[in-house]
Write a protein that binds this DNA or RNA. Structure first.
Length: 304
DNA sequence: CGTTGATCCTGGGCGC
DNA sequence: TGCGCCCAGGATCAAC
C-alpha cells in the first residue's frame, strides 16, 4: 500500500534520473488502469515531450511535461520502476517481479500495464497486480493541476507550510467520525493510509475508535505531531514493504521493522508489553495497544 | 453536507 | 496435491 512515504521514496528515486529525458513512446496493455483522461490515444500525445519536474501531492506522483502533466496513483499494489535495457545483468538477476522477491531489474510481466520508453534505452514500468492504480493526463496549466487536487479532495499536505497546527485544528470542524476513519480521509491530511494511520494513533496515544469531535485540544496537538513523526520516519527508512511495495529501483523499504502496531496483532506492545489488538474500523484492519491507547479518558483512567 | 458501506481486483494463506 | 473460501485495502459513489 503505497502511502505518502512510499510515494515520496519513489519520487526521490526517479527525479534525478528522469529530469530532462524525452518520452519516446507510451504503451498501455490494460486500459483498466487508464483514467478517462488518459484514454483514446491521449497517452501517445505525450510522446516527444521532456520531463521537467517530478513532484508529489498526497499519494499522487506528478510528472511535469512540456505540455501536460502525467499523474500516477499507485493504489494498493502499484509499482513504478526504472529499467535500463542496456544493462546486462546476470541471468539470475533477470526475472519478473514476484511479490517481495528482490531483483536487480524488473522484466515486464503480465502485471506490467504501462511501458514508457525513453530515447536512451531506459524504461519506466508501471506494474499493478490488483489494478487499483490509475494514470491521468492533464493539460499543462497550473489551474488544471490544482483543479485535479480539488476534484480528488486532497487536504493538508504534510511537510509544507500548509500543514500547521491552526489549519489542522480547523480541519476537525464538523467531523463526528472515528479517528481511524478521519485519518484515512484524504480530505483531512493527504497521504495517510492504513499503516501510517495506525502508527500515528499509537504515537499520539489515541484509541482509533474515538470520535473526532470528542478530542481535547491537547490530544489534537499530539495527533498533529504524531502524523508528522511517523511519515518522516517512513521516509527515513525508505517506506514500508509489508506486501508489494518496492522503490523505483525494485528494492524493499525497511520501515516495516520500525512499526509499533501495524501487523503486530498479539505481539507485545514495544512500550508496555500489552498484546497488540486488531479490530475492524471502516472496513479496515486496525491495530492498537489497548493500554497505551485507552478508549475512555477521564479521572478513572487506569494508565500512567 | 457528513458519514457509511458496497465495489473493484488478484495472490496468498488456510482448512479439508 | 488441489480445491474452495476468504482476506488484504484506496478511492469512488450511492444512499441515508
Amino acid at each position: 500500500m503505497p502511502e505518502l512515504p512510499e510515494v515520496e521514496t519513489i519520487r526521490r528515486g526517479l527525479e534525478p534520473h528522469l529530469i530532462g529525458l524525452t518520452l519516446q513512446s507510451l504503451t498501455a496493455t490494460d486500459p483498466k488502469v487508464l483514467d478517462l483522461s488518459a484514454r483514446d490515444g491521449k497517452l501517445s500525445a505525450l510522446e516527444g515531450q521532456k520531463i521537467e519536474s517530478v513532484t508529489r501531492r498526497g499519494k499522487y506522483l506528478v510528472f511535469g511535461l512540456e505540455q501536460h502533466y502525467l499523474v500516477f496513483h499507485l493504489g494498493m499494489t502499484g509499482q513504478l520502476t526504472l529499467r535500463d535495457t542496456h544493462r546486462q545483468d546476470a541471468d539470475s538477476f533477470e526475472r519478473t517481479v514476484t511479490g517481495l522477491e528482490w531483483c536487480e531489474q524488473h522484466a515486464p510481466d503480465r502485471h506490467t500495464h504501462i511501458h514508457i520508453v525513453f530515447g536512451d534505452g531506459r524504461q519506466l514500468l508501471f506494474r499493478d497486480i490488483r489494478k487499483f492504480g490509475r494514470v491521468y493526463v492533464l493539460e499543462r496549466e497550473l489551474g488544471h493541476l490544482l483543479a485535479f487536487y480539488k476534484l480528488h479532495h486532497l487536504g493538508l499536505e504534510p511537510f509544507t507550510s500548509e500543514y500547521n497546527l491552526k489549519a489542522f485544528l480547523a480541519a476537525f470542524k464538523n467531523r463526528t467520525l472515528r479517528l481511524k476513519s478521519l485519518l484515512l480521509n484524504q480530505a483531512f491530511v493527504a497521504g495517510v493510509g492504513n499503516i501510517y494511520a495506525d502508527e500515528a494513533l499509537f504515537e499520539a496515544g489515541l484509541h482509533p475508535a474515538r470520535k473526532a469531535s470528542r478530542l481535547k485540544k491537547a490530544e489534537k496537538e499530539r495527533l498533529f505531531e504524531a502524523i508528522h513523526t511517523v511519515l518522516e520516519r517512513g521516509i527515513k527508512f525508505g517506506g514500508t514493504s509489508f506486501r508489494d511495495y518496492l522503490n523505483s529501483e525494485g528494492e524493499k523499504g525497511t520501515n516495516q521493522e520500525e512499526l509499533y502496531v501495524y501487523g503486530r496483532e498479539g505481539e507485545p506492545c514495544l512500550k508496555c508489553g500489552t498484546p497488540i489488538v486488531k479490530t475492524v474500523i471502516s472496513q479496515r484492519g486496525t491495530h492498537f495497544c489497548p493500554k497505551c491507547q485507552p478508549r475512555h479518558t477521564g479521572s478513572a483512567r487506569a494508565n500512567k
